[in-house]
């Protein structure tokens, strides 16, 4: 009996989660894309953006309505790329002179 109760509670909780998932995703897909776009813009303006970031954001935008989960994943991927490109640039800014033949 306890087992049954536990299973049904979990099922209800899962279904409730699924039911609220879509509107949540719609809200967060916009912010995820906006976040990725802002980070990409910064990397692009400093001429350090990676080759695929812009395309990844475009893919995320295209999927925003039909597959928000995938769109968020892509936007987060693009944000990560832009962040990494900026961090890479900051890191190599300190050391590039060491490569100049003396």
């Amino acid at each position: 009996m306890k087992k049954l109760l536990l299973i049904s509670t979990i099922t209800v909780a899962f279904l409730a989660g699924c039911a609220t998932n879509y509107p949540m995703a719609t809200n967060s897909v916009d912010s995820a894309i906006a976040n990725a776009q802002a980070k990409y813009n910064k990397a692009h303006s400093e001429m350090v953006a990676w080759g695929m970031t812009k395309k990844t954001i475009e893919k995320a935008k295209a999927l925003a309505k039909t597959n928000p989960r995938k769109a968020i994943a892509l936007a987060n991927e693009a944000a990560y790329e832009a962040d990494t490109a900026l961090a890479q640039s900051a890191q190599y800014e300190k050391i590039w002179r060491a490569a100049v033949p003396k």
Partner: peptide, 14 residues
Amino acid sequence: KKLFYKQRGYLSIS
């Protein structure tokens, strides 16, 4: 000169 020597891109090469 900086563009020539500074590593860049996802391959992190210059």
